[in-house]
Design a protein around this nucleic acid. Structure first.
Length: 478
DNA sequence: TGAAATGTTGGGGCG
DNA sequence: ACGCCCCAACATTTC
């Protein structure tokens, strides 16, 4: 029997447009599909609860997809180099093929994997597959990384177009090896099963991702530029968790959306352009993380080291649990807890509230998002929290403080988003639903609402919090 | 990918 | 008819 080739799956849990898998298939040797659960390698950034739930479902799905083709996904738990060394010894594999990662620990991890392969006389090959543009390919004229989005994205668009997707290879033969049982990995919540809302909201896996992309393009892409902001509508793609786990690639999305846009043609920015620009922000985040690997924990702008943050555990808990007294903030935070997701508009509102109204360090918010979002992604999460806080690249200016009442009135005008996720406010009429503390007593009584009991009063006064935030930012502005 | 404060304008009520 | 004031409505600037 020929020496097998190990395809080391990570956040690339798909069979189509998978350059490493395609290259392994080209070899003509049996393929051993492998996933390693390595809780030791990123010491600080252990996968969050919602991510582990998704991972369990996604591994189940790709294992089935492989089984349909006669293969068996090998699951191993442990430190990656040790697992690879053991498996190379067991199987006599001639190589390990993987998709390049960009997190801060990836260079060392990939080097360790390469070393394990070399010691076993096998080759280690890394393929691109996660990004449209490699970080080395998009640099300013003097060879430095971009720190402002617009010129970055212009440079991307002027660059050679992204790699065209490759189809799923025909997989002729597989190798097998002893495998853990997925159920034994404990990825699903036990004790309280908080994942019911996730189960009702999501269908992880490659097939579902492709279906979602198709439905998005058919039904919502044309209206995306405006519609994505409305919290009570479902006008976003919701592809982010699929994209994070690599169930679909950015290249697949790029080409399908570009093709769909080819028939359009409008004076205002089209939905396709707006959507591709969001993919551009993802690229930008990954490039930033690659070039500035400390951004998950440290502000990119050094002057923020002395920012007068507050350590307010009660306020943080109120924010996490969706009881700040600002309905739009609470609705969004409860949506996050129930479904593992918020659209971008909601993320901006709640992030601005945590950082500007409460003056709580953005890292606390980033940690909470990493634990609760099904699309938790170190690059996007770090870059976007720093963007909101003003400490990052091309950051939102310090004075841009969202007014949660105005944001609610603008993007949830009839209050149906609030009603869906904050049921104790459901009986309030639209004029009052974003400002329950201003509602007349008769309206509150009719809605069976007792402020401070059935729903909290605002934990901060907007005008005072705004002034406090401006003063805090003035302190580091000198 | 804001919001609030401040400035300007123009219609209309009214003496 | 006229000037004055009020104040939306909109524009600009400031945070």
């Amino acid at each position: 029997m020929a020496q097998p080739v190990i395809v080391w799956f990570r956040n690339d849990l798909r069979l189509a447009d998978h350059p490493a898998l395609a290259a392994a298939a080209e070899v003509g040797a049996p393929i051993l599909p492998l996933y390693i659960l390595d809780d030791a390698t990123p010491k600080r950034w252990r996968m969050g609860g919602a991510s582990r739930w998704w991972l369990h479902k996604s591994l189940t799905t790709i294992a089935k997809d492989l089984a349909k083709r006669g293969g068996r996904l090998c699951l191993r738990r442990g430190e990656t180099p040790k697992v690879l060394s053991a498996l190379l010894a067991e199987t006599g594999a001639s190589g390990v093929y993987a998709t390049r990662g960009y997190e801060p620990w990836e260079p060392a991890l990939q080097q360790a994997a390469a070393h394990a392969c070399r010691a076993a006389g096998a080759e280690f090959r890394v393929f691109s597959g996660r990004l449209l543009f490699e970080p080395e390919a998009i640099l300013t004229g003097d060879g430095r990384p971009y720190r402002v989005f617009t010129p970055f994205w212009k440079a991307c668009l002027a660059h050679d177009p992204p790699r065209a997707p490759v189809p799923a290879p025909r997989l002729k033969s597989f190798a097998e090896a002893k495998s853990d049982r997925l159920e034994d990995w404990g990825l699903l919540p036990t004790g309280p099963d908080w994942a019911q809302g996730l189960l009702e909201t999501w269908r992880p896996g490659e097939a579902a991702a492709l279906e979602r992309l198709g439905a998005f393009i058919d039904n919502r892409l044309a209206n995306y530029a405006e519609g994505r902001n409305f919290l009570d509508l479902d006008e976003t793609s919701r592809l982010s968790p699929h994209l994070h786990f690599g169930e679909i690639s950015a290249n697949q999305i790029w080409y399908v959306v570009t093709h769909a846009a080819g028939c359009a043609g409008a004076r205002t920015e089209s939905g396709a352009e707006a959507y591709l620009r969001e993919l551009g922000w993802r690229e930008f985040s990954y490039h930033l993380l690659h070039h500035f690997p400390t951004i998950p924990s440290e502000p990119l702008r050094p002057e923020f080291a002395t920012f007068p943050w507050r350590d307010d555990r009660d306020a943080l808990a109120a924010w996490q649990q969706g009881r700040t007294g600002y309905p739009i903030v609470d609705a969004a935070m409860r949506e996050l807890w129930q479904t593992g997701f918020m659209r971008n508009r909601a993320r901006m509102i709640v992030a601005s509230f945590l950082v500007k109204h409460l003056l709580i360090p953005w890292q606390r918010g980033a940690d909470w998002f990493l634990d609760t979002l099904v699309d938790a992604d170190l690059a996007n999460n770090s870059a976007n929290w720093q963007w909101v806080a003003g400490s990052g690249a091309d950051a939102a200016p310090y004075f841009r403080i969202f007014n949660p009442v105005l944001q609610g009135a603008k993007f949830d005008p009839d209050g149906s988003y609030v009603r869906r996720f904050v049921p104790e406010l459901a009986a309030l009429p639209a004029p009052d639903i974003h400002v329950p503390w201003q509602a007349p007593a008769s309206v509150l009584a009719q809605a069976n609402l007792v402020l401070g009991e059935t729903y909290p009063r605002p934990i901060v006064d907007h005008a005072k919090a705004r002034a406090r935030s401006l003063a805090a930012f003035a302190a580091i502005r000198r």
